[in-house]
Computed example of a mutant assay.
Amino acid sequence: MSALNDRVVVITGAGRGIGREHALLAAAEGAKVVVNDNGADADGRGGDPAFAQAVAEEIRAAGGQAVASAADAATLEGARELLELARGEFGAVHGLVNNAGVLRDRMFVNMSEEDWDAVIRGQLRATFAPARVFAEHWRNESKAGRRPTASVVNVPSTSGLIGAVGQSNYGAAKAGIAALTVILAQELGRYGVRVNAVTPVARTRMTENVPGIAEMVAAPADPEAFDVYHPGNVSPLVAWLLTEDCPVNGQVYYAKGGEIRQFAGWSYAWTVDRGARWTVADIDKELRSRG
Rank of each mutant, 00 (worst) to 15 (best):
D245R: 12
V248Q: 14
C246A: 15
S235V: 03
E244K: 14
P231T: 05
A239Y: 04
F263I: 05
A239T: 09
L242P: 04
L237E: 08
L242Q: 03
R261A: 11
D245M: 02
T243N: 00
V238K: 05
V252H: 07
V252W: 02
V252P: 04
E244M: 07
G258E: 08
T243R: 13
D245Y: 02
V238C: 03
A255I: 07
E259P: 06
V234W: 01
G250L: 00
W266K: 11
I260M: 12
A255H: 08
N233V: 04
N233Q: 13
G265S: 06
L241S: 08
Y254T: 06
K256N: 13
G257S: 01
A264P: 03
G232V: 00
V238A: 05
P236H: 07
W240A: 14
G257Q: 00
K256H: 12
S235D: 09
R261E: 11
W240L: 14
G265E: 08
Y254I: 05
F263H: 06
E244V: 05
G258D: 10
E244C: 04
T243K: 09
A264I: 03
S235G: 06
L237V: 09
G232F: 00
G250V: 04
Y253L: 13
P236M: 06
W240R: 15
Q262E: 15
I260S: 10
K256I: 11
D245F: 07
G257K: 02
N233A: 00
D245G: 03
L241Q: 13
W266G: 08
V234F: 00
V234S: 04
Q251V: 12
Q251H: 13
V252Q: 07
Q262R: 15
E259A: 10
P247L: 03
